[in-house]
Nucleic acid binder design. Structure first.
Lengths: 193, 193
DNA sequence: ATAAAAACCCAGTGCCGCTCGGTTTTGTGT
DNA sequence: ACACAAAACCGAGCGGCACTGGGTTTTTAT
């Protein structure tokens, strides 16, 4: 998927892991534009050219970092995936990692362009996320836990939209409580009474 | 404010206008990273170095373009500003200008870093927008048009958040209807009945 | 031990944002 | 009408960046 080298040797596999770890740190600290591949290479104790043995370019490195963080998060969160009630908790987790949260926010906006290396990654991600939340809402509606005067698809778009939008507000004003915002939108979706 | 040159001569003022127009086109078509100052200068019939007589750098040019579009929009929309019911209409307007919408989305995410030239611009913008919407909601609540079991400040964050978040979803999947999403969140805020 | 593949690096290339020091143009006061 | 100051404009170049091509060295399976 853009990434080069099959990484058959043990040393190569370990170096790739190290590079993803270090690149995540640098991206989080300096931002995408702010990070230079030279710095990432230096931190890893290799030369810049060697980076291109593992990743086909800067955007590809970014994509690999994002996908890696996704895997780690969903792995440590237990195999089971997003339920509606998890959103405030995820937001709380993100508040503790401002650098990576900002990285995701910037990347998801810039990868909007179809020629961006991470475009397909985010497209698939949103499609999967919206579908998952939609099914979760349909189930909650059947159980009488969510008002039925809104289509599950629309409700899913709202929740995911609020999640992304609130992140921006929080990045500009850290006093913003993301979990509280997520909770209040869930309250709006509760059956009227 | 970062911008150089007082622009006292008529020719300079006109050139600056032209540069903002052309830069908006190029930014919208090529994205921020994709646009080169050389191309913007060529389109305007001047040399790259002359750009720096009008703007102190690429980020400053971007900021000027964004502020300029803001002014034009609010000017043609009549002096009166955002009322709650206007949001779906604004979303509809944005659907007709995908390039500039994407530009705003990318810029608002990247300008999250305090050292970005447009950081203060967006900070102020969000602060003003949230305050305006909050007051609008408080008024609507007093008139019985919006449910009162949510604080105006929280409701404002939700609406603005949905607006930004839905834009992202729309950029990845143009089938998404932004006005419909905005309408449905307003419906959720209507008094229960 | 050998040989193929992987890991690694040197030395560049071209482009980009940006700067410096100057020339030409424009508008104003007298 | 002329002088002159400020503004508009440009040529030439600098440093840094992502990225490449063509190698050498290291790893590991046989």
């Amino acid at each position: 998927m853009g990434t080069k080298a099959q990484g058959t040797y043990a040393k190569g596999i370990e170096r790739r892991r190290e590079l993803l770890r270090i690149a995540a740190e640098v991206f989080a600290a300096e931002g995408f534009e702010g990070t230079t591949l030279k710095l990432v290479a230096e931190r890893a104790g290799i030369k810049e050219a060697t980076l291109f043995h593992y990743f086909s370019g800067k955007q590809d490195l970014l994509t690999a970092v994002l996908a890696d963080r996704d895997e780690q998060n969903s792995a440590q969160h237990g195999g089971s995936v997003t339920s509606l009630a998890d959103f405030p908790g995820i937001a709380e987790h993100n508040e503790r990692h401002p650098g990576l949260t900002a990285l995701f926010a910037v990347a998801s906006a810039t990868a909007t362009r179809p020629d961006h290396a991470a475009h397909d990654y985010f497209r698939t991600r949103y499609s999967w996320l919206l579908g998952t939340v939609e099914r979760d809402i349909a189930g909650a509606q059947a159980r009488g836990e969510i008002r039925t005067d809104i289509a599950p698809e629309d409700a899913a778009r709202l929740i995911v939209g609020v999640f992304d939008g609130i992140q921006l507000q929080w990045l500009y004003d850290p006093a913003t409580s993301m979990p509280a915002a997520l909770s209040s939108v869930l309250r709006l979706l509760a059956p009227q009474g």
